[in-house]
Computed example of a mutant assay.
Amino acid sequence: MRLLLIGPPGSGKGTQAVHLAQHYGITHISSGDLLRRHLTDDTIIGRSVAAYIHRGDLVPDSIVMDILRTPVQAATRRGGYILDGFPRTVDQAETVDRAAEPLGTEVRIAVYLTAARSELIRRLLARGAQTGRTDDTEHVIAHRLDVFDHAATPLLDYYRQRRTLITVDGDQPVAEVTRTAIAHLDQARHELGLPEHRHTPPPVAGQHTKLTATLATSRQPAPHPGQNRQTTGHGRK
């Protein structure tokens, strides 16, 4: 199973990606974590992307593609992945698909995780205070959210029309969000004829802190060519 997790900074993508990866026995690949590792290790890539990250701008596509290519191919061979943080624009999604489809490594299902802007800012400021991340200042956070908002609508339309898109929205405990996401992912996986990958049971409600997201999907059938696909439906096999 090959998943993409979409959401604004602070929406809980990393937390949910870890839970879903553990549940399905697939690999969590975070473009942000990989880039920050290059920054910490002061590699050539890290030095080349430092200014983009500190400003809250998107790192050039070619660099992100280079650091993701090997992990994505390796994870696909092991049974699948959940990709967190890339692609973030339609141009990036098209570039990824052109490279991935011939190799059979393209995304099959996209999960969109939403949260209120005020809550996102609160979380990111708290994270910055705890971790010292230089990109978690109020000015940079606002810019990062603006960048995401500008790209989000066309990106979601892209995956709604070409893949299966599940939208997660609300304010439930983390475990409840994960359990609901798993239920809808299992349904989508069954509709697409994807193999089983479950390795662990869903988390028990009440064991984790809260996340402003719940799952809300539409199960209308996929439209004929030329029509818009609904929130959750049959994507490309």
Rank of each mutant, 00 (worst) to 15 (best):
I45N: 03
V49E: 02
I82K: 07
Q92I: 03
K210M: 11
R163A: 05
L5P: 03
S118G: 03
A216C: 14
A216Q: 15
P201V: 06
P71K: 10
R123C: 01
A151D: 14
R163H: 14
E101H: 06
A75K: 10
I182A: 04
H224F: 11
S31P: 04
R98K: 04
R78P: 07
Q220Y: 12
D57F: 13
G235W: 01
A116Y: 09
T40G: 03
A17R: 07
R98Y: 00
G7V: 02
H139G: 12
D66K: 13
H199C: 06
T40C: 01
R198D: 04
L68P: 00
P221L: 11
D57G: 10
S30C: 01
L3N: 02
A17W: 09
H184E: 11
I109T: 02
V174K: 07
M1F: 15
L34C: 01
V177R: 09
A110T: 07
K13Q: 01
R160Y: 00
R122T: 00
A115N: 07
I67H: 10
I63Y: 02
L103R: 15
A116D: 12
V204M: 07
T95M: 13
L211V: 13
A222T: 02
A99N: 03
D169Y: 13
H143N: 02
Y159N: 03
Q220V: 13
P9S: 03
S218C: 14
L113G: 00
D57R: 13
R236V: 08
V90E: 00
R47C: 12
D66C: 11
I82M: 08
E138M: 09
L211N: 09
L5V: 06
P173G: 12
A205Q: 14
Y112W: 06
G56S: 06
H19K: 14
V96I: 00
A17P: 05
V147F: 11
I53E: 00
S218Y: 15
R144D: 02
Q22M: 15
Y52M: 02
G128E: 01
L215M: 12
R198M: 01
L113N: 04
L165V: 03
A74E: 02
V168F: 09
V174C: 09
I182L: 08
E101N: 05
Q172A: 13
G7C: 08
H19C: 08
G79F: 05
E94I: 10
A51Y: 11
R55N: 10
T217Q: 11
S11I: 10
G226A: 08
H23Y: 05
R108H: 11
R236Q: 09
P154L: 03
T178F: 08
L103D: 11
I82A: 06
D136C: 07
V204H: 08
P173C: 09
Y81F: 15
G233T: 14
T134H: 15
N228E: 04
A74D: 02
D186A: 07
R78N: 14
P221C: 07
E138I: 12
R36N: 00
T214I: 13
S118E: 04
E176H: 14
A115F: 03
V90Q: 00
V140D: 03
H199T: 10
V59Y: 09
P60L: 10
T214W: 15
E106R: 12
Q92A: 04
V168L: 13
T15F: 09
D91Y: 02
L165N: 03
T153F: 00
R133W: 10
G25H: 03
V140P: 05
I182H: 01
L185A: 04
I29Q: 04
H184I: 06
T15M: 07
K210N: 11
L39E: 09
R236P: 07
